[in-house]
């Protein structure tokens, strides 16, 4: 029996199964149960949701294992958890806890301002954020099995996720028609591994599933990201900062499945009560923008 086989294919396999779904941030077993009952494909176990991290300030670290274990007990769907960028030991602890996916996330305070975790060393698959193609391919080169846009976590504002998604698609399309010498120049230019640049040029998309995160607050936001090319959305603060989380969670799940059905989207979006308040990006000082973390 080849249990524990650490192959990239097995890890990407789980990311494939999460397609067409919604991954929800939760901070306790009650929220995890609401997320599961609303149709989430996975939950992200956190101590504080991004909007509270932004408000409270201080250092944001990996969750207390107790919270993660309580959430693992409460639900049957995959449980993800975040480690700080470059924090090898938080990643090792999350692997020991048998989480299903690790998010090496800019939402937490980085532990290393130059390097990321070498993710090929782990049995548990990793997801990482990106703002552009170079960043996405550096993370995949390190072993990330899923890429998500960063957006601006905890802002309730979709503009950054849209910017990052469009930027990535624009750069992928731009590889089309480049010859091998030009692909090397491009790899140098965007700081990405040459073999991955060639692979993306050949297949016309990232070699791992590509999801969206950062600022999704409504069913329409979720459907927008799917129409722009994301396969699944992460919703952080957007659900549990809203007036009626269960109803909103369910509506976002439905909006991802029916992302191109105008009539359904209209009825899904009706009567959801208040969304999270949200912040204009220009009101967030440059040094407080979470998306700038990651190298």
């Amino acid at each position: 029996m080849k249990q524990n086989t650490t192959s990239f294919a097995i890890k990407v396999g789980l990311a494939e199964m999460l397609k067409g779904g919604v991954i929800m941030d939760v901070t306790n077993p009650e929220q995890a149960t609401i997320a599961e009952n609303s149709g989430a494909v996975a939950v992200m176990a956190l101590e504080r949701i991004p909007a509270d991290i932004r408000k409270d300030g201080g250092i944001a670290r990996m969750s207390d294992p107790e919270i993660i274990m309580e959430i693992q007990q409460a639900v049957t769907i995959p449980v993800m958890a975040k480690c700080r960028i470059g924090h090898l030991v938080e990643a090792q602890i999350l692997e020991a806890l048998n989480v299903d996916f690790i998010d090496e996330s800019e939402v937490l305070t980085p532990a290393d301002d130059i390097n990321h975790v070498w993710k090929h060393d782990y049995n548990v698959p990793f997801v990482c954020g990106c703002r552009n193609l170079g960043e996405a391919l550096r993370r995949i080169g390190e072993g990330a099995c899923m890429i998500r846009t960063k957006g601006e976590a905890g802002s309730g504002n979709i503009v950054e996720a849209v910017r990052h998604m469009r930027q990535l698609q624009y750069e992928i399309r731009g590889l089309n028609g480049l010859n091998i010498e030009e692909l090397m120049a491009k790899a140098k230019d965007i700081g990405a591994p040459f073999d991955l640049v060639c692979q993306v040029a050949k297949i016309g998309k990232l070699p791992v599933p590509h999801f969206a995160a950062g600022g999704i607050a409504t069913p329409a936001d979720a459907a927008l990201m799917i129409q722009l090319g994301a396969k699944t959305v992460f919703v952080g603060s957007g659900i549990f900062m809203s007036v009626d989380p269960a109803r909103r969670a369910e509506a976002i799940v439905e909006a991802v499945t029916y992302f191109d059905d105008f009539q359904k989207l209209a009825s899904i979006s009706t009567g959801l009560k208040g969304a999270m308040r949200g912040i204009d990006i220009s009101d967030i000082p440059e040094e407080q923008r979470l998306q700038n973390r990651g190298w």
Partner: peptide, 29 residues
């Protein structure tokens, strides 16, 4: 169990009690 126990392995498939084929397949959770 959780994702760490997902695996790829070889299976022998028998159809109509005669044809026998070996294939690799992936088990995810």
């Amino acid at each position: 169990g959780p994702q760490s126990y997902s695996f790829i392995d070889n299976l022998t498939v028998i159809i109509d009690n005669k044809r026998s084929l070996n294939i690799d397949v992936t088990f995810i959770r």
